[in-house]
């Protein structure tokens, strides 16, 4: 009998289904969140992202280590927090997802089609490479200030276009982002809505994505958040890393600038 293997159970945490309904109320969600302590299932996804970054993949059998996310090839620490920004090699303002796509194509030889086939998990999926990479990269910016580029004219026009898109009302329901996220202290059903036009609300939202969504059992990225908001606005599907996706994230990131990145977070 090996004594150091006593098998004493000192803590056991289970997520209980009946807490779900309550979890949607903010105060109670905070309590629920506190039960996790430092635990966030995203840690597993972060590990996967790290492995993916360093593993050889694609027709060129190359890792992503040579990928320049804005701070130089292979520099990942702090890179997420300074996106979106302008990249001279593509002559575009890019978010983390469109930049990763660029590197997967240029370095690894992957095709745009395969990258776009399923960048975000569908219900019941176990996670995608894009989600894992973004989770790991966000982790490399945890605790750093959100500082998107605004020095280049393209970066400023991306912000202005993002603002226009934020207020763009269309579709059968006449919804825009501002319909739900243009005022503070409001909620849909029991879900409270951050005011993304103000620093406080934008900071709260931008700093906490990507996040592990408990209700979906998956890490979701800010790009997915944009796409799913448009789905709820009754609009067509937003293309990952598209100019509109980048412009809206630029708008949010600039409104949130100065706040501290705390992602991957843990959400309802």
């Amino acid at each position: 009998m090996i004594s150091w293997c006593a098998g004493i159970l000192s803590s056991l945490l289970l997520l209980l289904a009946p807490l779900w309904a309550w979890a949607q109320q903010d105060g109670i969600f905070d309590e629920y969140r506190a039960m996790f302590g430092d635990d966030n299932p995203a840690v597993f996804v972060i590990d996967e992202g790290e492995e993916l970054w360093f593993s050889k993949a694609g027709p060129n059998s190359t890792s992503l280590e040579g990928c320049d996310l804005g701070l130089g090839a292979g520099v990942v620490e702090g890179a997420y927090a300074q996106l979106p920004r302008y990249f001279a090699d593509t002559d575009r303002v890019q978010d983390v997802e469109s930049r990763l796509e660029h590197c997967m194509i240029e370095l690894q030889g992957k095709t745009r089609e395969e990258i776009h086939a399923k960048p975000y998990s569908l219900r019941g999926d176990l996670g995608t490479e894009m989600e894992a990479l973004v989770a790991w990269l966000a982790e490399q910016s945890r605790g750093l200030a959100i500082a998107p580029g605004q020095a280049h004219p393209s970066e400023r026009s991306s912000y202005e276009l993002g603002e226009q898109l934020f207020y763009f009302r269309a579709g059968p329901h006449d919804f825009s982002c501002a319909t739900c996220h243009g005022q503070s202290g409001k909620r849909i059903r029991l879900q409270s809505l951050p005011d993304l036009t103000a620093h406080e609300g934008a900071a709260e939202a931008y700093s906490s994505w990507p996040a592990y969504r408990i209700s979906q059992g998956i890490v979701r990225t800010m790009g997915w958040r944009m796409r799913d908001c448009f789905r709820q606005q009754r609009m067509p599907e937003l293309i990952m890393g598209s100019e509109a996706a980048v412009a809206l994230q630029t708008y949010l990131a600039v409104n949130a600038a100065g706040a501290t990145m705390a992602a991957p977070g843990l959400k309802r």
Partner: peptide
């Protein structure tokens, strides 16, 4: 912004790019 949104979206199931037209 309107043109940008149209080029950034794709038809999905029965929802088409017509919905971007205001």
């Amino acid at each position: 912004a309107a043109m940008l949104l149209k080029s950034s979206m794709a038809d999905k199931n029965f929802v088409t790019l017509e919905r971007v037209e205001r």
